[in-house]
């Protein structure tokens, strides 16, 4: 019991008997004390402690933002360049196709012309050949007539030997056949 006087005085000091009694007056004290502490810390303490980190955060955020815009710009440039490249490529292909087309047309045109010339030449050659043949036939026929006439006159000049004549004519005809 000797050790107790100070402990017992707590009971004599007055106040709530247990921690489960709620003193509503303390709500106001707590709000006032906490509110003042909050305002003082917000004004005088937190900024000084947090400032450096906040500045760093803002700098990083700014750099990130810059990097993002740079990326976007680069992407836009790339897209534009690709568009240009595509256009150039399609133009080149168009040119190539046009040239091919023109060459084809040129070639077929030339071919057609050549064919026509060839046909004309062929026609003329055929016509020439036919004319030559006609001429030859006519000449042959005239020759034959001349020969016949010549033979006839020879026969008539000599005696008419029927057996000999027959042989002669036959041999002549045989020679004609050979000549043919």
């Amino acid at each position: 019991m000797l050790a107790f006087p100070s402990m017992m005085m707590a009971a004599e000091g007055g106040g709530p008997a247990s921690p489960f009694e709620v003193n509503f007056g303390l709500f106001f004290w707590a709000w006032i004390v906490f509110g003042i502490l909050f305002l003082l810390l917000k004004k005088y303490a937190w900024p000084a402690i947090v400032q450096a980190t906040e500045e760093r955060e803002q700098a990083i955020a700014k750099q990130l933002e810059e990097a993002r815009t740079h990326n976007e710009e680069a992407a836009a440039l790339l897209a534009e360049q690709q568009k240009l490249l595509g256009e150039a490529r399609s133009q080149g292909q168009q040119l190539l196709a046009d040239a091919k087309h023109a060459a084809e047309r040129e070639r077929s045109l030339a071919l057609e012309k050549t064919k026509q010339a060839q046909e004309a030449l062929l026609d003329r050659a055929k016509r020439d050949i036919a004319a030559e043949r006609e001429k030859a036939l006519r000449a042959l026929r005239e020759e034959a007539v001349d020969l016949s006439l010549a033979m006839a006159s020879k026969l008539i000049e000599q005696r008419l030997d029927s057996d000999g004549d027959r042989k002669l004519v036959l041999s002549y005809l045989g020679s004609l056949e050979e000549a043919n």
Binding site: M7, A10, A11, G14, G15, P16, A17
Partner: peptide
Amino acid sequence: EVILHHTADSWTIE
């Protein structure tokens, strides 16, 4: 009782 008194609030400071 002593323990509850000591954990409770009080009108005095010992």
